[in-house]
Amino acid sequence: MPSSPDDQELERLAGRVGERLRQAHDRVVTAESCTGGWIAKAMTGVAGSSDWFDSGMVAYSYEAKQRLLGVRPQTLESEGAVSREAVIEMVSGALVNSGASVAVAVTGIAGPGGGSADKPVGTVWIGWKRRGGYTRAELFQFQGDRDAVRRQTVARALEGLEALE
């Protein structure tokens, strides 16, 4: 896959994820920060997505992450919103607050500002979780401008859903 997938590639990927979810009788929920709902947009752009897409939450602010997804204030204060701990709490909260069986969450720094020496622009955490099952979180360092970072995040989030066991 190119480093920054185009709309057609994201659509194809979302279609493959949807077919896999449909066959497994799974429903998905998204919890998005840096992508602002783009994962949900890609998925609901697939005809028939109502068979496997439950809901999506965009939680950009600290307050929204706490209110909508149950991210603990202590996590945000000690680790920050762009952290393994925060994405795990986001993906877990998405499942608690939905009827879905699988969830994906993303939090990161898309740029052009907001980065630091510890967390430069392009730093993104993605988490996946199956209800009653495992939780997986991965750190990515994407390159490019804001659009490129967000596109790469959407693609990796969808690839992770496609690979769910």
Results as ranks from 00 to 15, higher is better:
residue 86 A to G: 02
residue 91 V to A: 11
residue 163 A to Y: 09
residue 108 G to R: 02
residue 92 S to Y: 10
residue 8 Q to N: 09
residue 105 A to H: 10
residue 49 S to L: 12
residue 60 Y to R: 01
residue 64 A to G: 04
residue 118 D to W: 13
residue 133 G to W: 11
residue 12 R to C: 05
residue 45 G to I: 03
residue 82 V to R: 01
residue 160 G to T: 05
residue 119 K to Y: 12
residue 155 A to Q: 03
residue 43 M to I: 10
residue 43 M to P: 00
residue 130 R to L: 08
residue 5 P to Y: 09
residue 82 V to P: 00
residue 145 D to K: 12
residue 120 P to D: 11
residue 16 R to K: 15
residue 103 A to Y: 13
residue 101 S to K: 09
residue 46 V to M: 12
residue 159 E to R: 14
residue 86 A to C: 14
residue 35 T to K: 02
residue 131 R to I: 11
residue 58 V to A: 02
residue 35 T to Y: 01
residue 71 V to I: 04
residue 64 A to T: 08
residue 90 M to D: 07
residue 95 L to Q: 03
residue 93 G to T: 04
residue 112 P to Q: 13
residue 100 A to K: 01
residue 111 G to N: 02
residue 125 W to R: 04
residue 82 V to M: 01
residue 51 D to G: 12
residue 11 E to S: 15
residue 46 V to G: 02
residue 76 L to G: 04
residue 48 G to Q: 06
residue 128 W to V: 01
residue 138 E to C: 08
residue 42 A to G: 07
residue 28 V to T: 10
residue 61 S to T: 10
residue 153 T to R: 00
residue 65 K to Y: 04
residue 54 D to M: 04
residue 87 V to G: 03
residue 152 Q to R: 13
residue 110 A to E: 01
residue 117 A to H: 14
residue 143 Q to H: 14
residue 88 I to S: 01
residue 104 V to L: 03
residue 80 G to V: 09
residue 67 R to W: 14
residue 35 T to L: 10
residue 56 G to N: 04
residue 36 G to L: 00
residue 96 V to W: 07
residue 90 M to N: 10
residue 78 S to Y: 14
